[in-house]
Amino acid sequence: MVMEKSKIKELIAKIEKLPTLPVVVARINAMVQNPKTSAREVGAAIATDPSLSARVLKMVNSAYFGFPSQISSISHATTILGFNAIQNLALTATVFQLFRDNSGDELFDRRRFWEHSLGVGVLSRLLAEKTRYADKEEAFTAGLIHDVGKIVLDQFVHEEFKAVMGLVRANDMLLYEAESRLLGLNHANVAYIVSQKWNLPKKLQEPLAYHHAPGLSKYNPQLTGIVHLADILCRALKIGNGGDNKVPVLDKAAVADFKLNASDIEQLKNVSEKEIEKAEVFLEML
């Protein structure tokens, strides 16, 4: 059943009721785009939201980063971990907050969904390291929120999404195929809308929008490919549940440049469990 254009427009309107990101995060995004921003300015910006400030500081001082001494202020954290890292931390802390609500029915298990998101975040970070992608933390964030579209659908278009989940259960099909069929758009499209609404950094937009079709990525194909591969690996390793039980087809061209072989994948598999544990501890702080 193909959706009529007007119905799709209705859906989008509902989705756009999504709250904006806290001003702080938007401001930080803008600041980090500007290479002339000083660490102090970043610190001052985050300080306007004391609870975010506290959370970010807790994260930077955690064993996850393993810095050898106490970091006492956000501005210090910025010059040590880097502007991008702080930006990603702020974003992660905020998005996680927004979707902490664990309501959800048995059809869409929020807990297992976060396990899957966490897994993809961790694997993206590991893959970023292996393929020498410049910003590992950025990869982590991208992986973590790649499926934010599903949360949005569940929250703001709940009835329709329930129908989609039902279809997935009945036919044991891929979620995004069911979404397209019933809604006329899939969670990747939704994620794109969200990333625009939130004015996310461009580098993060493409992995959200194209993780199921990495070939369409133009601006940041490497990160998109990483998240694409991480998503498939997590499904193959049955880490959490992304909403369906199937493994999508791997886009070989997208990952050809990574030059990974079987032993690399094996190695990733071996460290992923421990790394996911570490990340869980990390996210507990939120």
Binding site: S38, A39, R40
Partner: peptide, 25 residues
């Protein structure tokens, strides 16, 4: 290339806060 062959340490009167991405780059 991919190898770190040294580390340069600079002791500067500039405050830590004053640093920008551009400086680092």
């Amino acid at each position: 290339g991919n190898q770190v062959i040294g580390i340069l340490l600079l002791l500067t009167p500039r405050a830590v806060d004053e640093f920008t991405q551009s400086d680092q780059e």
